[in-house]
Nucleic acid binder design. Structure first.
Lengths: 208, 208
DNA sequence: CTTTCTATTGAGCACTTGCTCAATAACAAC
DNA sequence: GTTGTTATTGAGCAAGTGCTCAATAGAAAG
């Protein structure tokens, strides 16, 4: 029965949430307008009234997603003098430990990258921008770390260090997504800590 | 003109290669039987003569893929006494540095995981098995590392250490795939080495 | 009450997809 | 030859897809 009004953008939000649920079930590529509208409890036509086309729906969902995952949690803290490393370590550890709470979103995020974005430079740009923001949010901290121990980090740019830090986190995310059962953030972080505890570090080969 | 014969499984192989090319262009989810057969220069019907259905084609392609990427390069070396850490470091470094050569395969591999495998427990199993084999191939080396410095690695199982090692590599792979332009394996490995060089390692917080 | 605007419906069109199938050409065995 | 097997074709079906559109019901304005 047409004509029932719904206040403001309530419907739009409902449809977005339905799209999220469907994407979790069917992946981004398998998301169809019919299943979304059915899940939202509205007609198929209404979906295309609120979203011009499938692509716009997917973009809106991506925006919502990017505002949810860890990628949105940029690092803001300014380390106290002499404690830059501790501060960075804490940030990484926290990122790893809060990760399991966002598992579904993270999985969907990866899915967006690998599937939907292939012929869609707009999506790729959005994701790359979010990743870039996240990485850059680590740069000031990385710069402080480098400044704190100039000899040790000779030749290492803050950017590269930030890359490695976020790379650790992303690798961890992969583990979480691909191997959720045997992934224990505590054990993972512990092993990583042990790796880094020794003077003669494991990666310390001749420099190239 | 039907009837032209082709020796042995030559056709099958040709179609597989075409499927690989199409998957690179369109992603796994966007791979259609029509585009594959067109790319292989054969009729659509022939594809279903050599492969029972789309799924069987995708599985065959996945097998071929898994035999190509770094995942196939299990670690075999037995470290000389006292050099376990150096040996492991070398393995990781080598994995990172040879990675760019397999970029396309790695990207497709991730794509398989995140897309095609969602409703396909068989594919998921295959991929998980390959990842597991890879991780386990690091366990003996990890065990040697732990045995070499028991105090330092107290409470760390060889399995967890192997997880972190392969996690580093996977995180690196993510970086390579998502950010190919600004990714330089040398710089990455360098920063990682610096991170690990210091007594008061960056991850060395209070143990949990 | 009429008009107007917005929200809503569901049928349906054009197109794509996986897959089947009868027809047939080359080759092998007899 | 004849017969049979294997490789190959392309038309076509059934199912599903994104999206359009006439129809319409409610709210708001006059």
């Amino acid at each position: 029965m047409p004509g029932k009004k719904s206040p403001e953008n309530e419907r739009r939000e409902e449809i977005l949430q339905a799209a999220f649920r469907v994407a979790l079930r069917r992946r981004v590529a398998g998301l169809t307008s019919r299943e979304v509208s059915a899940d939202a409890g509205v007609s198929n036509g209404l979906l295309f009234f609120h979203f011009r086309n499938r692509q716009e729906l997917l973009l809106a969902l991506l925006d919502w997603l990017l505002a949810q995952t860890i990628l949105a949690h940029a690092i803001r803290e300014i380390p106290e003098p002499g404690l830059a490393e501790v501060c960075m370590a804490k940030a990484i550890r926290e990122a790893i430990e809060t990760m399991p709470r966002h598992r579904e979103q993270i999985e969907l995020f990866f899915d967006y990258w690998f599937t939907a974005s292939h012929n869609d430079e707009l999506m790729r740009k959005k994701i790359r921008a979010a990743l870039g923001r996240y990485r850059r949010s680590y740069v000031p901290l990385a710069r402080a770390v480098v400044a704190e121990s100039p000899q040790r980090y000779r030749g290492v740019t803050p950017g590269a260090l930030a890359s490695v830090a976020t790379g650790l986190i992303e690798g961890c995310a992969m583990n979480l997504v691909m191997n959720p059962k045997s992934f224990h953030p505590g054990g993972y972080a512990g092993a990583m800590a042990a790796l880094l505890r020794e003077p003669r570090g494991i990666m310390n080969l001749s420099a190239d």
